[in-house]
Design a protein around this nucleic acid. Sequence first.
DNA 1: ACCGTATTCAGCGCG
DNA 2: TGAATACGGT
Length: 813
Amino acid sequence: MECYISCARLFFVLLSLFLFYHQKHYFCPAENQLISTLKGSLMKKKNILDRLNDKQRVAVEQIEGPIMVLAGAGSGKTRVLTYRVAHLINQGIDPMNILALTFTNKAAKEMKERIINLVDNKNARNVWMGTFHSIFARILRIEGARLGYPSHFTIYDTEDSKRLMKAIIDENQLDNKIYIPNYVLNRISSAKTSLVTSSSYNQNPEFITYDKMTAKPKIGLLYSLYQNRCFKASAMDFDDLLLNTFILFRDFPDILYKYQQKFMFILVDEYQDTNFSQYMIIKKLAANNENICVVGDDAQSIYAFRGATIKNILNFKNDYPDLKTIKLEENYRSTKTIVNAANSIIVNNKEQLSKEIWTNNESGNKISLIQATTDNEEGTLVANSIFEHKMNQQLKNDSFAILYRTNAQSRAFEEALRKLNIPYKIYGGLSFYKRKEIKDLLAYIRLVINNNDEGALVRAINFPSRGIGKTSLQKIIIASEEQNKSLWQVIEQMPKQSLTISTATQNKIATFVTMIKSFSVQLNSKNAYALGREIASTSGILKTLYEDQSPEGFNRFENIEELLNAIKDFSEKDQGNIPIGGDIENEFRGLAEFMQDVALLTDADTSNKENPDHVSLMTVHAAKGLEFPFVFIVGIEENLFPSIQSLNSIADLEEERRLFYVALTRAQKKVTLSYTENRYRWGNLTLAEPSRFIDEIKVDLIESPQKASIHLSKTKGFGGTNKKITQANFLSHSRKKLKKLGDLSNQTNESIIGDEMNNLQTGMLVAHQRFGKGKVINVDGAGPNRKATVFFPNIGQKQLLLKFAKLKIIKSE
DNA sequence: ACCGTATTCAGCGCG
DNA sequence: TGAATACGGT
């Protein structure tokens, strides 16, 4: 819980950083160092190439023609990509003519920063670097008119899609037990990924027979209805961004030609995780120049379950006969032990390209194995082990990561780390922009930008509640279906409609319409922040949350303020700081421009500005592309890792194995595996046995299990480099550290209330950041739930959770 | 319209 | 187990 809130704050800190390039990358200390070194020693063009090994160098220097780089884990893949772009720019290529597609926004942003630091060219930021979705969303905003979309089209997130699909299933009186919204959406998604439109779906024997076989013959119909509804709302879902780009290029050769000319050089990162539609788009774009460089590692393909296919790597050879393939096989990241362990795992996969990863690094520590009795004990043992490593080797928290297969496993580790006052951060989980209050305000903003946005309208009209209920909305939806209009078009022409809605309700709707219109007209003239605030207050969102006396309500209020602050930051910065690409004519930084960034932003772009020194907790999937000195891979049990769902097919099991390979290769110095004999799953205790993956690691690379709990007195040294610490020494040392840790923990987890707050008593005068001075009326609750009732003369009585409210005691009596 | 209770479901998740 | 949603009563 606490994490969400710190996440929330962080998210927008990060959002602003994302937008303005002030971001530091915490996970790549080596590269970071490199950058500062380079900056300091006035980079010259030829120095770039000196930093590469022979193979990397070929991959960077061979700028013309098709190139495929098969880059093993830790082999400097990112460096090849960044240096290649830098090299292109140094060769005089206009950055505007370079297209670089990445897997995440974060990767794009980090790479771009590095490139800007590598080259002495102010225009370097104009490289079109971003995810497939963000790049093609941009192109669709420019060219979408050809397909009948306005440039301000909405991008539906998965929640919008689900809401819409539910509604459609309902409206068509289909059984939502048979037509489960998520299932239907998955079918549609895989169709779109295969470039099958709704009309071709209904003629596609493969899809039709499958749906008949599974007794869901109406899916094709639902697909059509869904597409129609999205189109009326001027909305695209994530898959549409790719599908529509493909259609655009397929049906409008002039546009395809334009972008083929523009993108003279194309680079694709994480090629093993691209799907068919991405493959086809790339193929089209590169068809003219064939200056295309793809980088990937088939051994790290872990997203087949959502449509990615390594066929793209195999097909690549067929598409470009004069393809040059380069294998990067030297690992710079990990110890010999880790590299060998990873190799001994991956050979068990039948389907793979031949590659032999090796390293010149030291042998390092053996892989440790922790055996626990219960999942809680697993948490404790891992946390203790982290603590022990820290103490013995004087390490920071950010040297450690705990990786798990499923998010549900995180709890035991959180609790154990909290007990030891070790700051941690959970990556993944509920992100800021998915919070209700944020989505509420964003819904208004979306509606103001795109009146036809159905998802936004349904949300906004319901909150704050204004007496327009389900029944009225249902009538509006029916009318919109009958007339093939958007919901907005129906309510805008309300008086002309013969709807069976009471005059009172009609008046309420009319008021709502007028309000939204009054915002819309200001969109292109008013400052984003001013308009955002006006929307937040006029809509009643601020007021409603303000009047909510509960601590949660207070928090929501704060989150809205946080969002408004982010908008303010955005609007105040001058243009030229556009996150992706650069040759954009639009210099006005209004709300619409802000929203274009937000729609495609995710939590993966977070890191911790307030206290970067934390242990990272995340799924193995989320860890892709990251590295840590010490990695704990937990829950290495049959039916969990490999997952029980993967045991039906060899292909799935092989993907699990690749996933385990990815997990291992995140580590630089040491890997610790853990498993438990008993695990709570869905409320009941189940027996667990060690994963087959443990047996697949060569025996000489792994230690036999450590069983009993680790106590301070049992501390042993690790490896050669650390200094020996006598027991007495260690204890006194650890006490100091403990205290320091407590302080840090206080910042990150917000779980410990400062000493001062423990002394808070009724009658004291306190100061609050926003509410000003007030008097404490009551204090109750304990630990993280400790809260105070404070009377603020100007505002009134407020209940504040002490762990969130940054109260200062002014006067004790 | 809203709230408390019953029921359901449970894998990883880029954008 | 626990969260997220559906239901049903006021």
